[in-house]
Design a protein around this nucleic acid. Structure first.
Lengths: 200, 200, 200, 200
DNA sequence: AATGAATGAGCCTTCATTCAT
DNA sequence: GATGAATGAAGGCTCATTCAT
């Protein structure tokens, strides 16, 4: 018996309502992420999202104040997901807590969350969207850069800041190229070659 | 209207017209590029472009069949510019025809044509725009990749394809990070560090 | 918003929606037919139709994919109406199934659906509209011509095709002259005189 | 040596200027009539007319105050032509000054001036155009009706007004059907059959 | 919680007309 | 007399959002 079967049973208990809300909200976010990644934010209409999520257009506004907040919600959730996955990967083994580990973790994540990265890379150059997203995205980027810098600093690199910038650019570049054409990109080889180079 | 105007009521000469047309077209393209880069393609209205270019909305359609063709024109022109600049840079000195030369040329160009790169990077993940642009953008990317691969092949690298992918990703990543925040990005140091690494 | 509205916040029933839709669609078609007949298709703007129908411009597109489809819908509906009325008139009495009956039926119908005939006669010479309407209008005309021809053939006329062409032209001509100035045209006398002539 | 060869010889004599004007004006009217008939008045743009007439858009406004006056000019000229042709046909032989003669003359004229009749029939139901054309078209129609009525009155018909209405409708109907599909319409047979009927 | 009809601002585009030369 | 670049007012249409139920 799935969640939707509550639908026509009323009055509902508060718990059922909570489950319903949860379900609808999840479906909306998932549908929106998929369509945003597929067609781009501005080319995706609320109508399309509602259809994909199998609910009425108006209902969307019960959960999100508008299209923009929906975008924010997607980023908030996805960024949390990514952070968690990262933390997990880092904690995996002690040996992973190295530059090589970071590279592997990052590129593995990209492959696992293509849609989000597509959306993210597609939003990054659009001031209108950056405004909507506020400083979150920028702060996140900074956070990553800082983490990398710390790695290089502790490992005694000569120019930790520059090294961090370079590695960040490299990971970001690979991620984007992969996301642009996942079927043909030699992600594994590229990852291992980079890892090897940074393990010397 | 003064007396002289009765004297020569002949139509503008073809040269005069050409100048007028050239001027309008240039202003339109320049304004559009600026605004597309600043706000993104879809967030930029024809009205905004016309205002920025200081001419009537309708005039735009004397020069371009629509917003999409305007985008295509911008890409066509900018891509030509970039190719020319590249060729020039390569021909500069014999010693430049190396991987190091390519890196320097590419990153110098990015700094000189920020707006275009911003637009380009902003368009790359948007299927709607890719459709508009056709295969040009993809073909161009492929061309760059091939050039890099050739360099590595002639220099006897073990995995020329993978090496090319990595260097391309690195350049692309640096370019994007620079374009995202040109004021603060340490482009010179990053470029030189990369060049040094690839000159060994 | 009164207290009762809290009591039953369930969505409209499908029946309620159907009524709403029916009403809007009917109002749109009626308004469009009226204005198309009054000002012509191309001189009638969507805005005018929406105002006449007392609803928002955008709503029109919930029912018709555009102005052209609206025109098609009007023709489809009106042609169906006319066909039905004709069938009814023909079935009226056995004696009606004669040329005289057809003439009377046709001219009566014109008087009852002036607006549609005005629109129809106004569209007939406009290639742009003919394209929109497709072959429907042409097919319909042919159908009428054939019906008339059959009458003459069964009644043993010497040149059934020519006779049909003549009678068709006559009816069409009278219909148009009537529609052009309904207040002053002596439709009844003209009809009866024609009928008398064809009853000999 | 044709008219256009004056073009680059300046200064021009007043006579040459007059010829030039005449030529341009004629070309404009001819082109406009052709295009109006082919695509309809509103679907024909000034640009199209100028191109067809092989002159600059702006020049058109040296001859006609606008699109509407151009339409008026076409009607004025064509109506004059038709009236003259009619007068000529009537004067042809004494025996032609009968109902039969009128029928033949009218239908012959239609075949000779298809474009104009197409435009005329296409304008008749469009109030916007009728307004532009003023009362001319209506007056003309009335004139024809009166002429026919006079014929029937002098020939001692019982209901001259009704008879005139019927014959007018018939001619008009045939003319329209012919104009709608000139290639296939059996104009000759139809004309002769009608003439025969009215010669009894 | 849910529905979907309705709204209206804003977009891209067309085109009659004007204007400087 | 002639040119064609430039103008700007509409027009058709889309779509995020609201509202009654």
């Amino acid at each position: 018996m799935n969640v939707r079967s509550f639908k026509n049973m009323s009055p509902r208990t508060p718990e059922q309502n909570k489950v319903l809300r949860q379900d609808s909200q999840t479906r909306i976010i998932a549908s929106a992420l998929k369509l945003f990644a597929e067609h781009g934010y501005s080319a995706t209409s609320i109508k399309m999202i509602a259809q994909e999520a199998n609910l009425a257009q108006g209902l969307l506004y019960n959960y999100f104040s508008g299209k923009e907040e929906l975008l924010r919600a997607i980023f908030a959730q996805s960024m949390t997901d990514v952070r968690e996955s990262f933390a997990l990967a880092e904690g995996d083994t002690a040996s992973n807590s190295t530059v090589a580990g970071v590279i592997r973790a990052a590129l593995t994540l990209v492959a696992r969350k293509r849609d989000f990265w597509r959306l993210s890379y597609g939003s990054r150059m659009q001031p209108a969207l950056l405004t909507v997203l506020g400083d979150d995205l920028f702060a996140w980027t900074q956070e990553i850069r800082n983490t990398l810098e710390r790695y290089f600093r502790t490992s005694g690199a000569a120019q930790p800041e520059i090294e961090a910038a370079i590695l960040f650019a490299l990971i970001d570049g690979v991620a984007q190229h992969y996301v642009l054409d996942p079927e043909h990109y030699p992600l594994a080889e590229v990852t291992e070659t980079i890892v090897a180079r940074y393990s010397m």
